[in-house]
Amino acid sequence: MNCEKALKLIDLVLDGEVSESEEHMLHFHIAGCSSCRRALEMGRDFSAVMRQISRPEPPADLEKRVRERLARMKPARRRIPGLPLWSRIAVVIPFAAALLLIIGLGSGGTGTDDSVPEAAVQPDKSVATETSAKRAISTPPMASYVRPASLVAF
């Protein structure tokens, strides 16, 4: 075993991740290599000293400050449990498509089809009008906007 391999094993020893056979090989190498033995001793001493270093104390009123901060924030959007983002989008797309289709049919495709007959654009004045109760606006019945099937097909 060379020193490069030994240094890798020293780190595994320090982290308690080394196998028994690897540790045996390392000790065999260390017996004849003062440089690697020194590296292992240093690593052990540094870990021991790290444990003695006291951790800095967090502020005593941390929870109060966190709660005040949360109160100032807008509430986060709640996630629907079990539904990832892509599946939520997949659910919304057909509804959006259906809505667009309804709007498209409702507007009668104006401006896209030059062959729309006059009768389809201009409702028949003779047809009785429906009156909106709220706004008192007279609107013709929906049937007057529908194009004849034969014209749409040909």
Binding site: P58, P59, L62, V66, R69, L70, M73, P75
Partner: peptide
């Protein structure tokens, strides 16, 4: 530290 715990709560 405050922001970390705010995120834990929000998310």
């Amino acid at each position: 530290l405050q922001v970390t715990f705010c995120r834990v709560h929000r998310y």
